[in-house]
Amino acid sequence: MGVLASVSGAGGRPGIVAPAGSREAVAAALAAGADVVYVGLVGWSRGGSLAGLPAGELPSCAAMVKEAGARLYLALNVVPDPRALEVFWEKLAGWVYLGVDSLILNDYGLLREVRRRHPGLGLTASVGCGALNREDLLFLAAAGADTVVLPPGISPGEVAAVAGEGMAPAVEVFARGVKEPFLLGRCWLAGYLRRVGVSREGRILYPGSARRGGTCGRPCRTEWDWGGRAAGPLPEEEVTVHHCLADYVSAGVRYFKIQGRDLPAEKVRGLVEELRAGLERLDGGGATHAGRHP
């Protein structure tokens, strides 16, 4: 929990957590004022080569982030094979040495062991850890998380109930994202329907969801026949908190996350600038809530 005080945004406002899937996106996020840049690594993070950096680019990205006075988070949201964890620990030690400030993990089992091995490292429990309520937050805090990501579409009222009073991990919500048909981290439809083999790099991919290193492919977006009564995908919704930022801040949000490590650099820059402008209006007392919540 020791890193909390050092990672909020400028002037005490909530931090902006920006995605980057390339060096250019890292630069764009920093130029636009991100407090945290999160990256993935091919083979260890969801999204494959479209959203993950080659490991060789991590040092230069870390240097860019440090130079800008921001923090670098590494999303390790593919659950490593438990039978080959030594490889994971060895790699992790190297990434930490290169300057990663915090990890984003989506297996709650890893939290405690990473905390034990790297006590100074920040730990974020990814949305894939499935936190929905106050007790989830306390469970994940006890395991070692100092930040917990809540699912897209959660209302300020729900955030307030989860964040609660007293000591707890910091709460992070999606500033803009997609509320998918199923709770994030609670869907294994892809691994049921699709067959997954070996990657182009020759790495054996687990059959299964993206959290297992497979590919999702969004079968939920298929044109399903609904019992002969309708046709269409499982319902999903784009959500944003921009119209009620103040309500989320009052509810206890410490970080706003922008989804999409696969976004092009210019898009990342625009999204960070938009969010930063909204938060700065808050600082100036401007209206940022309309009483309409997701």
Partner: peptide, 13 residues
């Protein structure tokens, strides 16, 4: 089944 036990570390937690 929705407790998402993927690893022995999760189970030990």
């Amino acid at each position: 089944c929705f407790a998402n036990v993927y690893t022995h570390l999760g189970a030990l937690e």
